[in-house]
Nucleic acid binder design. Structure first.
Lengths: 155, 155
DNA sequence: GGCGACCTTCAGAAGATTCCGAAGGGTGTG
DNA sequence: CACACCCTTCGGAATCTTCTGAAGGTCGCC
């Protein structure tokens, strides 16, 4: 099997996994394409052809991947196409979108606590929930910092 | 507005958020019901009535919530119904289902690395991915340990 | 200012999820 | 051992997502 076909197959498998984990299907396929390509950057047209998908859906996927910060646009003088590539910290960004989720859970718990009577069972459960997400909200950014420090010290 | 209706409204809002974050809709509603109820345990029939949903769909939701370890069955002598309640560490369990996802990402990256040529751009990107998830896979369980220690020291 | 290249948006089709309600199985009781 | 109660399973309907293909917008160049 040609190397390129092998890469393509692996990319599709990874895309399936990402989509299992909640990423939209086309975003996952685009993501995987960026990961496995040997080109420095990819354009919308190249992606659409590689993935055998419409430019419309690739456009939507690119938009959302830029939105979560996993991709960046790369200026290429002399080309009118948009050139995209994976950001170095793409995976960290993907993971830390969790952070926003954690913040929302923390806030929801706080709301619930404010609305329940002290000593009620519901209050107790909401307090447990709030404590946990407060801890995570504090610690996750610190964990990312440690990750960056470890990575940078290796370079 | 009666307190119970208020709780119900808040529960539905939280359910919506959980479902945004990827939880199945009915599981999210059941989860929220457990969080906001003032009863010590809930049965399938009670949940179906409270949520105005069929017993069938509540049954499916209960099954999957038990599967991820957020609920536990509580023996109630003299009752033929199954009584369920939220586990104290439900949120930690929900979050740590992430852990499995991290492990899979780490493994996928390792596979990719093994299949690409050294010095290729793809190899470099896969290595970045692998490093990140390896770090997370190591650190997340430690973070949970710290959480439990902090919680227990408060009790 | 017209043209060509490129990207985005959108309506509708195709596909996947999710839910209900009925049927069926299991278990304890009289 | 027949019944009552409770839970689960499953087919099909309803709903929501996601994709395509076409139309339209933007920008630079001649």
């Amino acid at each position: 099997m040609p190397a390129h076909d092998d890469a393509r197959r692996r990319a599709e498998e990874l895309a399936l996994m990402l989509s299992d984990l909640g990423m939209q299907r086309m975003s996952a396929r685009v993501m995987a394409a960026f990961l496995f390509t040997d080109r420095p950057t990819l354009t919308l047209g190249e992606l659409a052809e590689e993935l055998d998908a419409s430019q419309g859906s690739v456009s939507g996927a690119l938009k959302s991947l830029h939105h979560v910060g996993m991709l960046e646009r790369v200026p290429v003088p002399g080309s009118r196409r948009d050139h995209h590539r994976l950001r170095r910290d793409a995976w960290e960004r993907l993971f830390s979108s969790q952070n926003e989720a954690v913040r929302r859970m923390m806030a929801a718990a706080a709301d619930g606590i404010a609305a329940t009577e002290a000593d009620s069972p519901a209050r107790g459960r909401l307090q447990e929930m709030h404590d946990f997400y407060t801890f995570m909200f504090r610690e996750l950014p610190l964990l990312f910092e440690r990750w960056r420090a470890e990575r940078d010290s290796r370079d």
